[in-house]
Nucleic acid binder design. Structure first.
Length: 566
RNA sequence: UGGGGCGUAGCCAAGUGGCCUAAGGCACCGCUUUUUGGUAGCGGCACUCGGAAGUUCGAAUCUUCCCGCCCCAGCCA
């Protein structure tokens, strides 16, 4: 990241930054330590990216550090596959946890000791209420709960039972360790929350060593304390857990005193950002895996060709507050286009080919025309592109009966073939069904390079590819996965899936220089958008994903004319 | 109806009693430049800060009441 970027980011204020700055100036903090704590039960999505950028960003800005900690306290839905995927995603986003990779499971012994300590203080007890009874005893939002019959059982018995829970003497759910706090609290989390439960399950990291596992509430704050986290930043739904977080820290001999701060999670229009729903899309094969380019997962965005720089920029632009918000995808799109415009190499590629024959161009002749690689960056230079008698242009760059203000190819009209010549359409050849299948055109040899010596102005410039030299590719074109801005609000999520979210174009024609493209590298097909080679692509069978279309004001004009009654 | 959080333009979001007759970005609408109908540039887009009272010389910022939205009754995180 360069200096400009840093200043820009520092210019964006947010309340978490203010808190940290305040803690520094008051002397409360000497150094800042944050952490990104995913549970390895799924893939990371752009909402996680917001948290990652915040946590690593705060640490970097104040000269501290940020840990990557896996919150692996529930072995029933956690897998090594997810751990590896998450590490890859965080790294790809551009962040480095250095030596500080941790797992809540690293602390299982200490956590067990803390639990014993709490029992000894008579602040925790083993409870034998079954889930249904527990729910009943907990009371409701408006009615206080009732004490568990075992709430005041003696320390020795609790110690013994807890040890036997650990030893694996009981089946799942038989007993539970609860904190003794306040069954009448208005905050449900304080009504003697469960600290440990019996789970005779194999853990991805600790195997069969444990039969009891700490809950999030018991593991998180203590893990923070053990790691020396100063600012434990989480999302709003944990606000109600903060009193419990603080209660644990106050009542346990922990090595440090972390504090929890909450911010609003990200919501995006036309997308779904919950692991449960993303999991559903994957398991019901509604998409092609977690890294489907239509997915808002980090891996999906990566496969789509969206660069980490754009995601980071997006994260800083949306800000960090406590108010629930839904960001329009257009902002993400803007960040992607803005970045890609600066760095993407320009190429000529025809998505839906229409054959063009230049009648007065010599048979068998090929010439090279010079093309600019990136007008935003002089240093990226030029390349040569072959031009010949038979070419392909975009089907929608020709209209036999054009509307007003259409300045592409049309019978008798002259347009510029980018970097090549002025071309005039003489005739459109149709098949029996009346579809235009070929254009017969002529060129003006005086206009090589795309300018005429007589200075006549040409409004339309279109792109093309030489048929003889073109390479073929399949291109995946994407639309929003959902056609409703808030998928699932009006019923079943599945009903809001956009049936046109993926269209695969085959037989696309690309300029030959694209033959040796690298997976993931962003390219702009002029006038069409940004594209990236899919990981499944091979030299014999090129496959591109459309990352993002260009902004298209012509499409807008047309749409407006349409709705205006034509 | 218990507890907690939040309400500044279509969407994010600055702002923490006077330099606010309210930043910035996205979106949108014009115009200019342009061998990408892209980019870039220029201009427009909240007399008003959920509402109402009040405090004050002065309020989006303080007080009170009201309204609305979100979260919590997993041995998930």
């Amino acid at each position: 990241m360069n200096e400009t970027d840093e200043t820009e980011e520092e210019g964006v204020s947010n309340f978490v930054r203010d808190v940290v700055r305040g803690d520094f100036s008051s002397g409360k903090t000497k150094s800042v330590v944050t952490r990104f704590p995913p549970e390895p039960n799924g893939y990371l999505h752009i909402g996680h990216a917001k948290s990652i950028c915040l946590n690593f960003g705060i640490a970097a800005e104040f000269g501290g550090r940020c840990h990557l900690r896996f919150d692996d306290t529930n072995p029933t839905n956690e897998e090594i596959e997810y751990i590896e995927a998450i590490k890859k995603d965080v790294t790809w986003l551009g962040f480095d946890w250095g030596e500080h990779l941790y797992f809540a499971s690293d602390n299982f012994d200490k956590l067990y000791g803390f639990a014993v300590n709490l029992i000894e203080q008579e602040k925790a007890y083993v409870c034998d209420l079954c889930p249904d009874e527990m729910r009943e005893f907990r009371g409701t939002l408006t009615k206080p709960g009732k004490d568990s019959p075992r709430r005041n059982s003696p320390v020795d018995g609790n110690l013994d039972l807890f040890a036997r829970m650990k030893a694996g003497e009981f089946e799942d759910g038989k007993y539970v360790l609860r904190a003794k706090i306040d069954m009448a609290s208005g905050n449900m989390n304080m009504r003697d929350p469960v600290l440990y439960r019996i789970l005779n399950a194999s853990h991805p990291r600790t195997g069969d060593a444990w039969h009891i596992y700490p809950t999030y509430d018991f593991a998180h704050g203590q893990s923070d304390a053990i790691e020396g986290i100063t600012h434990s930043i989480c999302t709003l739904e944990f606000t109600d857990h903060r009193p419990l977080y603080d209660w644990c820290i106050e009542n346990l001999p922990v090595p440090s005193e972390p504090h929890q701060y909450e911010f609003a999670r990200l919501n995006l229009t036309y997308a779904v950002l919950s692991k449960r729903k993303l999991m559903q899309l994957v398991s019901e094969n509604l998409v092609n895996g977690w890294d489907d380019p239509r997915m808002p997962t980090i891996s999906g965005l990566r496969r789509r060709g969206i660069p980490p720089e754009a995601i980071r920029d997006f994260a800083t632009r949306i800000g960090v507050t406590k108010s629930d918000s839904t960001v329009e995808v257009e902002l993400l799109n803007h960040c992607v286009r803005e970045y890609l415009n600066k760095i993407a190499q320009r190429r000529l590629g025809v998505l839906r080919p229409l054959k063009v024959v230049i009648e007065n161009y010599p048979e068998g002749q090929t010439e090279e025309v010079g093309a600019i690689n990136n007008p935003e960056n002089e240093a990226s230079g030029r390349r040569m592109v072959p031009f010949s008698k038979v070419l392909y242009i975009e089907q929608n760059d020709f209209m036999e009966d054009p509307p007003k203000k259409y300045y592409r190819l049309t019978p008798g009209k002259e347009v510029r073939f980018r970097y090549a010549y002025f071309i005039t359409c003489q005739e459109a050849i149709k098949d029996v069904a009346g579809n235009v299948i070929e254009l017969r055109c002529t060129y003006d040899p005086e206009t090589k390079g795309g300018n005429s010596p007589d200075g006549r102005k040409i409004k339309g410039t279109i792109h093309w590819v030489s048929a003889e030299h073109a390479i073929d590719a399949d291109i995946n074109m994407y639309e929003h996965l959902f056609d409703h801005p808030n998928p699932g609000v009006e019923g079943d999520l599945i009903d809001d899936i956009n049936p046109n979210s993926l269209t695969t174009l085959t037989g696309c024609k690309l300029e030959p220089s694209l033959a040796n493209s690298v997976v993931g590298e962003a390219v702009q097909f002029e006038r069409n958008g940004y594209f990236a080679v899919d990981p499944s692509s091979t030299p014999d069978h090129l496959i591109y994903n459309q990352t993002m279309a260009m902004r298209d004001s012509w499409a807008k004009i047309q749409a407006k004319d349409m709705s205006a009654g034509k």
